[in-house]
Design a protein around this nucleic acid. Structure first.
Length: 866
RNA sequence: GGGCGCUUAGCUCAGCGGGAGAGCGCUGCCUUCACACGGCAGAGGUCACUGGUUCGAUCCCAGUAGCGCCCACCA
């Protein structure tokens, strides 16, 4: 037997067995209640990173337990076509060949993306298998497969017919590098040093000038007005006058608008309706025609006069230096502010006036808020609900059109004769006007549009499939807080609108995996990412999973370092060795897959069984609350320190006792079996392997029933013996008494005959059986140990330096006295007895009694030292 | 400018109204025949600070300080 567990070989062996046996299909529990989770679909061209590993470890632990509990458990896998991200990847590949997507054309490009998907699209699926994800691959979906695409079209057409999708010319966020519009949540605001430039605009009538402050001087080329607050006393005379726009020599009005703040800058603002959202609205209120001076390449347009063709940042400097030449700059001061960047490529986004498709979100918001508020769907932890509400209540309409090629093409056609817009399920062939050619909209939909439909489209919607009826609404969604807005909120809105049900009952939010060294989120760009695949190769998937699960407190970021993965691996090794030892040396085998709890256990057996029952019950409570970290830390400690360090050691000795060997073996088998079961959702591979060695064969652990442990009562005697043994060990350790036989322990009395294990651990002399044990003639020179009906003496003379023991006992006595004082003060307080629950009072009294008894014992020991 | 979270053992974090916990690290002893990736025994904390509520506060409330995150059209 190899003393070290080798995960790689074992892990590669089990996944195919599980998958081929159909164990991941809900059909394994045909009569079970349905329980379903849809996976947050990873990018189809992506690779597994730590965030996935965490997300998947949690989901897998949840679904595996539900499966074992007998639910018809479905974890539905799939991938996202990930519009911009995927297109960027393929364009990068093309560029290596010196080509752009425009060079090869739309059709060829899309073929290229599909080809890319065919090669790299399975990567994530095979990596999920390595991780052990028990997803039902027969139900795998892709946001761009035929079924989902048809559903996307149906949703678009329906919303259009309901008036909830419209096309309009608005200020949108434009990424000049990706060449597409973005929604506002795809814009990341970052701090920028920035400068505020104060520019003087002279009045037409020659009565001086008005000064405005701007962080973007280049946009002045498109100014169509100056705005001040209508109540601003400084500018009462100015409203209604006109100024000359410097450099452009255009006459523009000064208007009063309530959107302007008194305090900021000079209280007067330049208005550039084509390049700023606030300015756009001011422009609309005052009937100002926008002038576009920055194009989709972020260059100055022909309307920008002498600056035409310049890049926007180049133009910023050029405009400033020209203004300086004509003495139109009053001041330039530092002004830190935040600037929007494209969340994909980090380019500074440009607010542009553009014709785009929008979803009107307000009518969808109400039901999505109600579902949470009423408790039909809940966030875990609950505090995320506040973020969700706040975000929902402040939504702008969702810009859903993207100027990309990879995505669901918008099903809208325009007639070049009459200008009619046709949005329909079927591709139209001609316009109702009878003339003119129909031209299809070039744009595709935001990736998140199809993701928003994921919980029901993956189950067959709009068809009324059996899966949709059975598994929708889904039970639980597990995801990171970073996509609550992108994804969760939109699924809630779309789900409620199209199915009348919220798509899930529980929304479990976890944090980001953080690197403990830098304290930062793990990411490739930060350069601090641990690669889960490398960790799996080195430590095994079980170890990575257990480390993540144990670190994942609900709703908090998850710190991780390789040392923890190594600790988890060492646990796997321990589990491996302990179980193999039980099987090979203790003859624990052919354990029943369920039940089989001993009816007449010995005292030690009853003790471990009672602990098993407590741990299993507590785990169920914790797991039902999604507190996986607590549940698995509890089990980890129980398994290691109680089952392996205590019970297994007891069992070795007890096994020599013919009368007890059978129940011991039975108990050991059952306890280890249930530990494997309880651990399986977290560490499926090693538990399945060990299970195969100890059960009577045939049935896989993956679909074995979850433990239901009957209640056992732990004999009080065992607990006190544990204390006694610990005390003897401490004594020996402290006085460096290496061999047990170097110490003479006399058992004077015991309520029950002591099993040989205890005598051995205590180092008691074989001839000092408890029944006829004699108290030493003189207790002086002995130390007396007693605990709950057991009394024992250790002979000290000639064994230790008596004086070395004295200070320790004195410190213990001092601590006990302090505890007694505290306890007495509490009990003497009439308010305590009057107002605290009776239970607490009696508990306190009992504690005082125990501490006092301990004090007496310690004092006697001190005396007996002589 | 709003909102949220965090501050507990050397490190990373649990706990959250009634006796301060885990992992890793540290100290001592043990190569004992499942595991030295192990065993046994230990050391180590005024639970950020200040008030309040309570019979009782690490836990609840208010405030202070430090750290982190999210949202935001003050140009």
């Amino acid at each position: 037997m190899n003393p070290t567990y080798q995960p790689a070989e074992v892990e590669s062996r089990w996944y195919p067995v599980w998958e081929e046996s159909g164990s991941f299909r809900p059909e394994v529990n045909p009569d079970g209640e349905p329980y379903s989770i849809v996976i947050p679909p990873p990018n189809v061209t992506g690779v597994l990173h730590m965030g996935h590993a965490l997300d998947h470890a949690i989901q897998d632990a949840i679904i595996r337990r539900k499966r074992m509990q007998g639910y018809a458990a479905l974890w539905l896998p799939g991938t996202d076509h990930a519009g911009i991200a995927t297109q960027n990847v393929v364009e990068r590949e093309l560029r290596k060949e010196g080509l752009s997507r425009q060079d090869i054309g739309r059709e060829a490009f899309i073929e290229k993306v599909w080809a890319w998907k065919a090669v790299s699209g399975d990567t994530i699926a095979s990596q999920m298998r390595k991780l052990g994800d028990s997803t039902d691959w027969t139900r795998e979906r892709f946001t761009f497969d035929d079924g989902l695409s048809a559903a996307v079209r149906k949703v678009f057409v329906t919303l259009y017919d309901e008036g909830l999708i419209y096309r309009a010319n608005r200020i949108i966020n434009w990424c000049p590098r990706c060449h597409t519009a973005l929604s506002e949540i795809e814009v990341e605001h970052e701090n920028d040093p920035g400068e505020l430039t104060y520019i003087k605009y002279p009045f037409v009538d020659g009565s001086g000038f008005i000064t405005v402050a701007t962080t973007r001087p280049e946009t002045m080329l498109g100014d169509t007005a100056i705005a001040v607050h209508p109540d601003d006393e400084r500018y009462q005379d100015a409203i209604g006058k006109s100024v000359i726009l410097p450099l452009m020599e255009r006459e523009i009005p000064v208007v009063g608008d309530e959107g302007v703040e008194h305090e900021f800058g000079t209280g007067a603002v330049k208005v550039t309706p084509a390049h700023d959202l606030l300015d756009f609205e001011i422009g609309r209120r005052h009937d100002l025609d926008p002038i576009v001076v920055i194009d989709t390449e972020a260059r100055i347009t022909v309307d920008g006069g002498e600056f035409a063709g310049m890049d926007r940042f180049e133009a910023r400097e050029a405009v400033r230096s020209r203004l300086r030449e004509i003495d139109a700059i009053e001041a330039i001061e530092e002004h830190p502010h935040s600037v929007g960047h494209c969340s994909r490529c980090h380019t500074v986004v440009e607010p542009l006036l553009s014709l785009q498709w929008f979803v009107e979100v307000q009518p969808l918001v109400g039901p999505a808020i109600d579902a949470i508020r009423s408790g039909r769907t809940r966030f875990i932890p609950k505090r995320w609900e506040k973020n969700y509400f706040h975000w929902m209540e402040n939504l702008q309409d969702w810009c859903v059109s993207r100027q990309l090629w990879w995505g669901h093409r918008i099903p809208a056609w325009y007639c070049d004769a009459c200008g009619e817009t046709i949005v329909s399920m079927e591709d139209p062939t001609e316009c109702s006007c009878g003339e003119g050619e129909l031209r299809r909209d070039e744009d595709v939909l935001d990736t998140w549009f199809s993701s928003a439909l994921w919980p029901f489209t993956t189950l067959g919607w709009p068809n009324e499939t059996a899966d949709l009826a059975k598994f929708y609404p889904t039970s639980t969604l597990v995801t990171g807080f970073d996509i609550i807005f992108f994804w969760v909120a939109r699924m809630m809105k779309m789900g409620l609108h199209f199915t009348d049900d919220a798509p899930f009952t529980d929304i479990v939010i976890h944090g980001m995996v953080r690197d403990t060294a830098t304290g930062r989120k793990m990411s490739k760009s930060a350069g601090n990412a641990l690669d889960p695949l490398e960790l799996i190769d080195e430590y095994g998937a079980d170890s990575v999973r257990l480390a993540l699960i144990q670190a994942a407190a609900p709703g908090h970021d998850v710190p991780l370092q390789t040392e923890w993965v190594d600790a988890a691996r060492r646990f796997g090794n321990k589990l491996w060795n302990a179980t193999r030892f039980a099987v090979e040396f203790m003859d624990v085998s052919r354990v029943p897959v369920d039940g089989g709890y001993p009816e007449n256990p010995g005292p030690e057996d009853a003790w471990i069984l009672s602990r098993l029952g407590e741990v299993a019950a507590e785990m169920d409570r914790l797991l039902d609350d999604y507190r996986l970290a607590d549940a698995y830390s509890l089990l980890y400690n129980f398994a290691w320190s109680e089952v392996f360090d205590w019970y297994l050691e007891m069992a070795k000795t007890i096994a020599r006792d013919d009368d007890r060997v059978d129940t011991m073996r039975e108990t050991l088998g059952i306890v280890v079996r249930d530990v494997l079961k309880l651990f399986h959702p977290a560490i499926p591979f090693v538990t399945e392997e060990l299970w195969s060695h100890m059960t009577d064969g045939g049935e896989l652990l993956v679909s074995a029933p979850w433990p239901k442990v009957p209640a056992y009562e732990s004999p009080a005697n065992v607990d006190s013996l544990v204390d006694l043994v610990t005390e003897v060990r401490r004594f020996r350790s402290q006085h460096q008494i290496a061999r047990k036989t170097d110490i003479a322990v006399t058992i004077v009395s015991s309520n029950d005959p002591l099993p040989v294990w205890w005598l051995d651990q205590l180092g008691a002399l074989a001839n000092c059986s408890p029944a006829n044990g004699q108290r030493p003639d003189s207790t002086a020179g002995h130390t007396r140990l007693s605990s709950c009906g057991v009394e024992a003496y250790i002979a000290l003379v000639g064994l230790i330096d008596v004086e070395a023991e004295r200070p320790r006992i004195e410190k213990v006595i001092a601590d006990l006295e302090a505890a007694i004082d505290r306890s007495r003060a509490k009990l003497d307080n009439p308010n305590f007895k009057g107002r605290a629950p009776a239970e607490v009072v009696s508990q306190e009294e009992q504690r005082l009694g125990e501490v006092e008894a301990e004090l007496v014992k310690q004092q006697r020991q001190l005396q007996e030292l002589g």
